[in-house]
Write a protein that binds this DNA or RNA. Structure first.
Lengths: 143, 143
DNA sequence: TTGCATGCAAAAATTTTGCAGAAGT
DNA sequence: ACTTCTGCAAAATTTTTGCATGCAA
């Protein structure tokens, strides 16, 4: 999986005439071996531990590249922190976000997606992508 | 509808021992007679036209009060602009967001909500609220 | 060599906060 | 009188940009 995404990114870089650099490799590695919903700051801090001279701007620019290449996606949970999540080809998932401990659970539901398509069709709307987030308390935080 | 919300807000203000002021009335009026998904800046600019001396901070603080009182809700469409939408008691709706022209269409779908409850139950998760947004092109922008 | 990438700092953009004076209750 | 509000400016956050230098192709 990790190798696959590294390849996708390298191919994207090459195709666009961009360059493969040490920083991009480091950031990609840190991203791929992290929590699937990392905020930019979390990733930056994690990087700083081993690579104190990597700039914040480079992290921002590189994450945008990841999104462009298709291996990551920008997400906003409304807490003022932009996050990036891992994207696997052809896969989509939605989120259960625990407002107690911040845990994020992913799920997929074919029936919901189908109903979404129906709603869109009723409005003659062409869906490109969607976002479904359920906020509340996870099992642990309920007790 | 407008009267109802004004009353809800006034009651909230009174209950909290807060004060009814000219600015709050003006902002509430502008909010209630606006598009249902107004960004803070849009509302601020609209206000400035007639009331040039209202401060940005007051708009921010007042919109937060609207949300606390239950007549408004903060929403983020991921474009870096915080918006507030109108909330009617017991009513919930989701959004079709046109990435072409920015139009926002509201919809409700009981079946989707039911499936969401099932997903939550399967994870022993207690839903407080949710967000469902379908992004794509509206009928007009498709042609 | 050529031109993209990096790191730093400065700039933008958005939201929050402190404070003195103004205004509701 | 008392306390909350307001407007302004300053501060805090988050993200973007400019630029000289570094580095990959």
């Amino acid at each position: 999986m990790k190798r696959v995404k590294q390849k996708i990114f390298q191919d994207y870089i090459a195709r666009q005439g961009l360059k493969s650099t040490r920083q991009r490799d480091i950031i990609l590695d840190a991203f791929l071996s992290s929590d699937r919903h990392l905020s930019i700051e979390e990733l930056y801090l994690k990087l700083r531990a081993k690579h104190p001279n990597i700039g914040y701007a480079t992290v921002y620019r590189t994450l945008k590249l990841f999104a462009e290449s298709g291996i990551a996606r920008e997400i906003h949970f409304g807490d003022g922190q932009t996050r990036y999540e891992h994207v696997s080809e052809g896969e989509h998932h939605d989120h259960l976000v625990c407002t107690g401990c911040g845990t994020i659970i992913e799920f997929e539901n074919e029936s919901i997606e189908k109903l979404q398509d129906e709603v869109a069709a009723a409005h003659n709307f062409l869906i490109k992508h969607h976002k479904l987030e359920l906020y509340g308390l996870c099992a642990k935080c309920r007790s």
